[in-house]
Simulated scan of single mutants.
Amino acid sequence: MGDVQEQGESSAKRIKCSIEEAAFCCGECNEPLRPPIFQCPEGHMICSPCRGDLPEEKCTFGYSVRCTAGNLARSLSVEHAVESILVDCHYAENGCTENTAYYYHVKHRLMCPHAPCECPEPGCDLAGKRGELLDHLTAVAGLHKWPSTTFQYWVPFDLRIVEPGTHVLRCKNDGQLFLVS
């Protein structure tokens, strides 16, 4: 259902399409399936953590109704399908170019550096990119004018320079912002 396009160094062709989100979710926990994936002879899919929680590692489908099909086996074809599903980042419009595996896209969304940042000051409605937030919090022309210090991971610095009140720490390595009060 869409254009075929080559992507990356692989000679594999990719097809733009859409899938129902629940199609590749665990039958027990409803989380996205990620390898290793197991399947009973009846076709019920289950993730590895849920497999370990099952009595005798036998399929229970839905609300602990025992499947009469017996033991679970690894489903390499479904693993391959799940690994081949790439999802554009939710924040692509903010500049993120990541295409993550289907089972990882929610985690990426929570950690994406292009996600809008909200001002932590109660009553302030700013939501923007990390750089905009830094200027908003610290710049002379910014709203809050909080003092800031830049640091690097694994390089000691003196926290005694932090003045009383709210202080912004910006990591030189990855741009993360930390508030110290």
Rank of each mutant, 00 (worst) to 15 (best):
V87Q: 04
A81H: 03
L159F: 09
V106S: 09
T97Q: 14
S148N: 11
F61T: 14
G27Q: 06
P122N: 12
R66I: 11
S181R: 15
C26H: 01
C17N: 04
E57M: 11
Q176F: 10
I46K: 03
H90P: 01
C124F: 00
V140A: 15
C89G: 12
V180M: 07
F178L: 15
E9S: 13
C40M: 02
R51G: 01
C25P: 04
C124Y: 05
C25I: 06
K129E: 12
S48F: 10
N30F: 15
C26W: 03
Y104I: 03
N94I: 00
V87L: 07
V78W: 01
P164K: 14
T97P: 01
L33N: 04
P35S: 13
L159R: 15
V162L: 15
I85G: 00
I37N: 12
S84H: 04
E98G: 03
F157G: 04
V155H: 05
V168C: 01
H114A: 03
T100V: 09
S18N: 10
P55R: 05
G70I: 04
H136I: 03
S48P: 02
I15P: 01
K58I: 08
A73G: 08
E93Q: 09
R34E: 06
C117A: 09
P164Y: 00
S10F: 07
L159A: 12
G52Q: 12
Y91N: 04
A141H: 11
M111K: 15
G2R: 12
A141M: 05
C59G: 00
E6H: 12
M1I: 08
F24R: 01
G62L: 09
L76I: 10
P41R: 04
A69G: 15
P116T: 05
M1W: 01
T149A: 11
I161A: 13
K107I: 07
L159Q: 14
C50F: 03
L133C: 03
K129W: 07
I15H: 01
H108L: 10
C124M: 03
A139Q: 08
T60V: 13
S18V: 10
G70L: 02
S75L: 06
Y102S: 02
G128S: 13
G142M: 13
G52F: 10
F61W: 13
G43E: 06
G175F: 08
N173L: 02
G131T: 11
K107A: 06
P116Y: 01
H108W: 06
G8N: 13
S181K: 15
E83Y: 07
V87Y: 00
V82I: 14
E79G: 05
D53N: 14
T138G: 03
P113H: 02
P156E: 02
C96F: 00
C29E: 12
F151Y: 15
N99S: 07
K13F: 09
I46M: 11
C17L: 10
P156I: 00
L76R: 14
L159G: 14
P156S: 01
G27R: 06
E121A: 12
E121H: 13
R74G: 02
K58D: 04
C59R: 00
E31V: 06
V162I: 14
C119Q: 02
L54C: 03
D174L: 06
N30H: 15
V87C: 08
M45N: 07
A12R: 14
A92P: 02
V168L: 02
M1D: 08
D135E: 14
Y104N: 08
A23M: 09
C26E: 01
V65M: 13
E6G: 10
W154P: 00
